[in-house]
Design a protein around this nucleic acid. Structure first.
Length: 875
RNA sequence: GGUCCCAUAGCUCAGUGGGAGAGUGCUUGCUUGACAUGCAAGAGGUCGGUGGUUCGAAACCACCUGGGACCACCA
């Protein structure tokens, strides 16, 4: 045995991960006949280092897979990373800019070369973090969303969907980020409440008079092509079919009617700008209006903006407002809070923009995904409520813009004929390639992430991995990416493989700081998981993250709690030290023999161990790790350490050889099961202790504990409960009368039941051990003339003669209070039992429990009452 | 506007139909031979409010109050 008195995470963690990898414990064997269990890691972006959210996510995956590995499954925990198109491109561009290089001065190839370098750099940071976290990943199967196999899958799916008519190209209003100059999907746009203005502009009518139109984006009026009112609106009915004049520009705008207009809102008159607003775009389509796009891709005004050409959109707004005011066209400006879309990545204000893009037709895919939830193939969401989040989103989903005007990503497998303009879409380039030009755009990152559970296993090829490890078993991720990722994996997998991508989805929340703010780079409030590991060790961090909240709830990061986990691990460490010291060097797992005569402590702890194994297994299967962790914590600290080990010290100090052997067996047996149950939560320290016991053998590939009913004895629990009650009673009194354990006192225990009396006598050495009596008398009837403290317990009465230490009157008062309490309990219990509705409707077990309580309280009441009477007679 | 989550001890949070719990903090005592990062004893809660369902509600339902998240095209 070589263990310091203090748990040192750095020493413990040193070198373990490398040894696990060398031994190949995490390598999944496709030819194994064991049942497979598969988890794919949610691929982190290669944009930066891993944060606490990753640590949490990965810990849960690792706990699940380590547990399954111990339970005899062929486990595949597959690692990989995401190229993260926009985010990575932006980071690389930023770094280049710092080096004085502008992205537009590079060719596509040159830029990609730089980006691959970046990717390699960050990939190694990420792998270092995974190692620190202790993740049991099969690196032989590591994937990257841009690698060859995955690109093949992406192309195949693009072509398939195109051929099925589920991917199309067209000119529509999309969300445009003028900063990164790319299209964005709806969910990449973050809406924020912004203090803006409502500009009320006067549009003169051709025939005289005017209408008042309110807008929040006056610069878009440069692209107005109509005025619209509600056909039912009496105020404006007459105007329909006439013309208004666009201020400044002077264009004639037809006044049209459409029920879309809300008569109650604003002035009830709306300008229509089909090229710069999604609703106006739809109006433009139904009414066949011209689309005038007045902006360049960088958000500045183009030549169609006349005198404003070249101005940035917000500069143009200012200038236009000035000009409208000068021309007497500005009626009023009201301040107005409204929600404005911002780019998730660049935070630039998103411009609704007319643009030619590629889209996925969502309705048929969404329908399939929703229908699947009504079959026996339904995906189980944990917690359940997120299935609602998923289906609500799927139900009114819009088509998905998948093209991005970037370089870093999967270039769209579409080619345009240089002369005819004909489109070719295929997995391989057209044969006469010199006549064709490939689409410059790449696909949305999430298009490839959506294929992750099967593209990583070799799909579309009919690989052995696909056959063995797909569908995967559980996907663990944050609820914040249900739309981005989970939903898209589900419809993609159902469409492409005909199977669900995973059986279960376990959703966790977000990591927040101590002020309950989301941890983010911009706030600078992020906590680096590697710093936490440096201070407390990976095992403490993992246990904290796994048990710090329930599924779907956010976690408020607390250093204090991680520290208290460190204390717990230190406790485990020292309990193991005790065990190892006491079993000695020559006793091993093979020497465990539980067939001989066991002490009460042995029987009790083995019974409780069985119950703990059962509970931890059950709770973990339901992903209730905080409960499983609590059960383990209580068993280990409160029962194994505080009671069993203390009791085991007796035979170890003064028992016979046989008794010592049994104690060694039970100690080691229990410790072994404890370590195995803890291992998924804290892999490093459990491995260290396991190897202290077993030498080279690794706990990683050991076996999950099983309940052994032959070791359970329910009666031991009851006997133990009585002993604990007696011991606690004495301790309590010792505290009250300020008599430390070092000072022996006389203890009398009155037991009316003969068989209970003999059982307590047989175990009196435990009472002696914990209470340090001068004399211990266990008898049927105690009669003492001196002053006593009397504690009436469930089955026995503890009487301590404490002449001079306790006050007669106080003792009487205490007993009276006790009598009153028992009286209250009795009234409550009798109230229930006398209620016919209770006895007839409540389950028999519950009624029986109440009856037993009544009997116990009655006996206690009588006992206390007798004592009290005696005591009073002496006053 | 719609949907969802949260409200339990000073603090952080478990507990989802039959005895109000843990960690931490606080009080008191203890150099007990694994651990003072520990041991023992203790104080501290009308489980946000109101009403309902039930023999029985912290838990289930409705409404209300307060906090938070997400979704949504209101010019």
């Amino acid at each position: 045995m070589d263990m310091s008195t203090k748990y040192n995470p750095k020493e413990v963690e040193q070198g373990k991960y490398e040894r696990w990898l060398e031994a190949g414990y995490f390598k999944a064997d496709v030819s194994s006949d064991k049942e497979p269990f598969t988890v794919v890691i949610p691929p982190p972006n290669v944009t930066g280092k891993l944060h606490l959210g990753h640590a949490w996510d990965n810990t849960l995956q690792d706990i699940i897979t380590r547990m399954k590995r111990l339970q005899g499954y062929e486990v595949l925990f597959l690692p990989g990373m995401d190229h993260a198109g926009i985010a990575t491109q932006a980071k690389v561009a930023e770094r280049l800019r710092k080096e004085g290089i502008e992205i537009k001065d590079l060719t596509r190839e040159e830029f990609l070369e730089q980006t691959w370098k970046w990717k390699e750099e960050y990939a190694s940071f990420i792998r270092e973090s995974w190692a620190k976290f202790g993740l049991g990943l099969d690196y032989s199967r590591e994937r990257f969303t841009l690698d060859e196999g995955l690109s093949k899958a992406v192309n195949k799916i693009f072509v398939d969907l195109y051929n099925k008519g589920l991917i199309y190209r067209g000119e529509y209003i999309i969300n445009w980020d003028p900063s990164t100059q790319t299209a964005l999907s709806d969910i990449e746009v973050i809406h924020k409440e912004v203090e803006g203005n409502f500009y009320h502009v006067k549009y003169e009518l051709e025939d005289g008079g005017h209408v008042e139109i309110a807008t929040t984006r006056p610069e878009t009026m440069l692209g107005d092509t109509a005025i619209v009112v509600n056909p039912e609106d009496d105020r404006y009915k007459d105007l329909i079919g006439k013309y208004a004049i666009l201020p400044i520009v002077g264009r004639k705008l037809p006044i049209i009617a459409d029920r879309y207009v809300d008569m109650e809102f604003g002035t009830g008159v709306m300008k229509v700008t089909p090229a710069h607003d999604p609703n106006d775009f739809v109006l433009g389509e139904t009414h066949n209006l011209e689309r005038i796009n007045v902006m360049h891709e960088d958000g500045s005004i183009n030549e169609l903006g006349g005198q404003y050409e070249g101005l940035d959109r917000f500069e143009c707004r200012k200038q236009l407002v000035k000009d409208l005011e000068a021309a007497g066209h500005m009626i009023k400006i009201e301040s107005h809070v409204h929600s404005v879309g911002h780019s998730e990545r660049s935070n630039a204000i998103v411009e609704p923009y007319l643009s030619t893009q590629w889209f996925v037709r969502m309705d048929p895919l969404a329908e399939k995904a929703l229908e699947n939830q009504d079959t026996d193939q339904a995906i189980k969401f944990v917690p359940e409520r997120f299935e609602g989040t998923f289906s609500r989103w799927m139900k009114d989903i819009k088509d998905w813009v998948i093209s991005r005007q970037l370089w870093w990503g999967h270039q769209i497998p579409a080619w345009y004929h240089n002369e005819t303009g004909e489109i070719y879409v295929g997995e391989t380039p057209p044969e006469d390639l010199e006549n064709w030009t490939q689409d410059e755009d790449v696909l949305d990152t999430w298009f490839s992430s959506a294929l992750w559970p099967f593209s990583t296993l070799g799909w579309p090829d009919d690989t052995e991995d696909m056959k063995k490890f797909f569908p995967t078993n559980v996907l663990v991720t944050g609820y914040d990416i249900i739309f981005f990722w989970v939903a898209r994996m589900i419809f993609s997998s159902l469409e492409q493989t005909g199977q669900k991508p995973f059986d279960d989805v376990l959703l966790h929340g977000l990591v927040r700081d101590d002020q309950n703010r989301k941890m983010s780079k911009s706030l600078g409030n992020g906590v680096d998981p590697l710093d936490v590991i440096e201070d407390y060790g990976a095992d403490a961090l993992r246990y904290y993250l796994a048990t710090g909240s329930t599924p779907g709830q956010d976690i408020k990061f607390s250093n204090e709690r991680v520290e208290s986990v460190w204390n717990f691990i230190n406790k485990i460490w020292n309990a193991s030290r005790f065990s190892l010291i006491n079993i000695g060097d020559n006793f091993t797992m093979d020497d465990i023999d539980l067939s001989g005569e066991k002490s009460l402590a042995d029987k009790w702890i083995l019974t409780r161990l069985n119950e703990t194994i059962d509970a931890v297994t059950r709770l973990s299967d339901k992903y209730e790790f905080s409960e499983a962790g609590r059960v383990l914590y209580n068993f280990i600290w409160d029962e194994f350490c505080d009671w069993y080990i203390e009791m085991a010290k007796i035979p170890m100090a003064q028992g016979t050889g046989q008794e010592q052997q049994m104690t060694r067996s039970v100690l080691l047996y229990t410790l072994d099961k404890i370590l195995k149950m803890l291992h998924p939560f804290m892999p490093f320290v459990t491995e260290e202790i396991y190897q202290q016991i077993n030498g080279e053998a690794s706990i990683v590939v050991s076996e999950w504990p099983k309940v052994d009913e032959s070791l359970s004895e329910q009666s031991a629990k009851k006997e133990m409960a009585t002993l604990v009650e007696i011991i606690k009673s004495v301790r309590q009194t010792r505290n009250e009368v300020n008599t430390p354990l070092s000072k022996p006192i006389d203890i009398h225990i009155e037991v009316k039941d003969e068989s209970l009396k003999s059982r307590i006598e047989a175990n009196s050495h435990y009472i002696t051990r914990f209470t340090n009596p001068e004399s211990l008398v266990i008898t049927e009837k105690v009669t003492l003339e001196e002053e006593t403290k009397t504690d009436v317990l469930s089955d026995v009465t503890v009487i301590l003669p404490l002449a001079g230490l306790i006050n007669f009157e106080e003792e009487v008062a205490r007993l009276e209070k006790e009598l009153k309490r028992l009286d209250g309990e009795l009234k409550r219990v009798n109230g229930k039992l006398n209620n016919e509705k209770f006895t007839s409707k409540a389950p028999e077990a519950v009624v029986e429990e109440e009856r037993q309580k009544r009997d116990r309280y009655t006996a206690q009441y009588e006992e206390v009452n007798t004592r009290l009477t005696t005591l009073k007679s002496r006053l």
